[in-house]
Structure formats: C-alpha cells, structure tokens
C-alpha cells in the first residue's frame, strides 16, 4: 500500500494511541472494563495495523517472529509462575495472599496485576503469531485486485 499516503500518515498517528490505550486497558483493568485479554488484543491490533498498512517486513523488523513466539510462551509462564511462587511461599496454588501475607488485599492486587499481565502478553503474542502465519504465505493477488 505504498501509494496510500493518507492511510500511512493516519496509521502512524494512531498506532501510538492504540498502544497507550492497550496499556491503559491492561493496567486499569481493575477499575474499568477490560483486562489482560482485551489489552492483549488491542496491543496486537497495533502491530497488525502496522503490518497491514506498511508491510510484513516492516512489522517483523520491529517485532521479530522469534520474539513474538517467546512472548506468547512467557505470558503463560508468568501466570503459572505466580501460582508456583505462592506454592513455594506456603499457600495454595494461585493464592495471591502469599504475595503480601500481612495485607491480603494488597496481595490480591499484585496477583491480579501479574496474572493479567501474563494473559495480556500471551494474547498479544498469539494474535501476532497467527497474523504472521497467515500473511507470510505468498498471496495470490496484489493490491490492485481489491
């Protein structure tokens, strides 16, 4: 889409706010609608829109596939790891009280933020992975065919 000047400029402006919004949804999920899953999707959309309007090579230079795959696994690991940590601290699996034994409510907050972050990272990674998998195959039509 080299010739769509307006599209490219507007996309450049939008990507920043999309990503900020994703982070807002991620970390403000305790107070407003949203959470890890939604934030992960929005963050992935930020990368996908860049890939759609510019090109796959451009977005893969910013966010290389190997990193995306690692991130998808890292999110699950973060979530499960939170559970393991509480297990080692002598509480049951995924009992966030372990993260702050003197103030269980704070422990719940930390736990929720951590696991939501894990969900968000995984969802971003997987969505971008699927997008890469679909678009990195050779398409049979060019831009003009649309």
């Amino acid at each position: 889409m080299r010739h769509h000047l307006i599209l490219r400029v507007v996309t450049k402006l939008l990507i920043g706010s999309i990503m900020i919004f994703a982070l807002y949804v991620q970390f403000h999920g305790d107070y407003s609608p949203g959470g890890g899953f939604q934030a992960g999707v929005i963050m992935a959309v930020g990368f996908i829109i860049y890939g759609v309007v510019f090109s796959l090579e451009d977005v893969q230079r910013v966010f290389p596939p190997w990193l995306v795959h690692k991130l998808a696994a890292l999110g699950v690991l973060l979530y499960a790891g939170t559970g393991i940590v509480s297990l080692f601290l002598g509480y049951s699996y995924l009992d966030y009280t372990a993260l702050s034994p003197h103030h269980p409510v704070h422990g719940q907050h930390y736990g929720i933020i951590l696991v939501e972050l894990g969900v968000g990272i995984t969802v971003t990674g997987v969505m971008v992975t699927i997008y890469y998998a679909f678009t990195s195959r050779t398409p049979i039509m060019d831009d003009e065919a649309w």
Binding site: D30, G75, I112, V115, V119
Partner: peptide
C-alpha cells in the same frame, strides 16, 4: 479483593484456575 471491577476480581482471583486454563488454550491455539 477490593477491586472495583468485580469481573476482573472473579476472573483473576476466584476463577484463577479457569483463566490459567484459558490462557493455556490461547497459547495452544497459537
């Protein structure tokens, strides 16, 4: 839990195992 968004509280804390499973499903799908 003291989190104003009860949906988040239920998803991440009371139903933490379910959400872990969901995350694993998303990962497996990827």
């Amino acid at each position: 839990i003291d989190v104003p968004n009860i949906v988040t509280a239920i998803l991440a804390s009371y139903r933490g195992f379910d959400t872990l499973g969901e995350t694993a499903v998303v990962f497996t799908a990827g």
